[in-house]
């Protein structure tokens, strides 16, 4: 599934001034245009408040657009009926940033992963037994074990929870996965495992990724193309190598420079020290 975002803007209404007037609105997204090729990984880089979360919500139709179009496989989503949108939801899934907050604490792993199957039972009719089998299959696919089936989220580590989140997203066999900072809450060692898992899943299942992150290292590792967003505007976009090796905008250059490198010799402070 390919995704085309054309001239999308989102303005949040300003504060009320007096009885009828409103202050100037806040432009969370300003004329964003980008396209995600089928089967590729597209990275979206931005800091907090850049509008990357708003864009995700717009793609998922959790927010409405102020202007522009979002096209899935060439179809404008605003032209779809509510049944068609539900169908679309099944093909378009999301993995959230915080594995602690995105799983319902009162549900077992089985119920969490099976939930999309229950919701979309009209598209994918399954018996309860088939659902359980599918959940098992998914758990093994993301590197969890069968014995985890009827446990609760709080019994798992952050990395395991994120695997559960990935299993849930994969349950209805989607083609397109939005990954909203899926590893930023995890330890680096666990992050490496999850990134490798995502990479393997993409190859096995032919998924298209829309990967949101503020970590340039992670983007570089996973993505083919990248777009840099700053205060609701796209600063630059293109293939990962060209953007990272030859950034055109000051903002991208600043981001690259600010990224802490684990090599002490690259520290901006240490240069000062050695010069003393």
């Amino acid at each position: 599934m390919s995704l085309d975002i054309r001239n999308v803007s989102k303005v949040f209404p300003g504060q009320r001034t007096g009885m009828f007037g409103r202050g100037e609105g806040f432009h969370a997204l300003d004329d964003i245009t980008l396209s995600v090729r089928k089967g590729s990984s597209f990275g979206l880089v931005g800091e907090s408040g850049s509008g990357k979360t708003t864009l995700t919500r717009c793609i998922l139709r959790l927010d409405t657009l102020s202007a522009g179009q979002i096209l899935y496989d060439g179809t404008d989503m605003s032209s779809l009926s509510s049944t068609e949108i539900r169908r679309l939801r099944a093909r378009l899934q999301i993995v959230f940033q915080d594995p602690y907050a995105s799983l319902d604490p009162r549900m077992t792993i089985h119920d969490i992963v099976a939930e999309p199957l229950v919701i979309h039972r009209d598209i994918l009719p399954m018996t309860a037994r088939q659902r359980t089998d599918r959940v098992m299959e998914l758990l093994l696919q993301v590197g969890l074990q069968a014995e985890h089936l009827f446990r609760y989220p709080h019994e798992f580590s952050g990395g395991q929870r994120q695997r559960i989140g990935i299993a849930r997203a994969l349950a209805v066999k989607p083609e397109f996965l939005i990954l909203d900072e899926p590893t930023s809450a995890l330890d680096v060692s666990v992050q490496a495992d999850v990134l490798n898992l995502l990479h393997r899943l993409q190859q096995d299942l032919g998924l298209t990724y829309f990967f949101i992150s503020h970590d340039l290292g992670v983007i570089r590792y996973i993505c083919d193309d990248v777009a840099v967003i700053y205060r609701g505007k796209l600063v630059e976009q293109g293939p990962v190598e060209s953007i990272f090796d030859n950034p055109q905008s000051d903002y991208t250059r600043m981001l690259l420079a600010a990224m802490p490198d684990p090599d002490p010799d690259r520290s901006p402070f240490r240069k000062v020290l050695s010069a003393d």
């Binding site: 680096v188 060692s189 490496a192 490798n196 990479h199 290292g217």
Partner: peptide, 21 residues
Amino acid sequence: QALLNAIPTVHTKRGELRGIG
């Protein structure tokens, strides 16, 4: 060494990262 290998930097190639487990 494993911790260092687990960090994706802008120089890391795909498939090079290793978990720690």
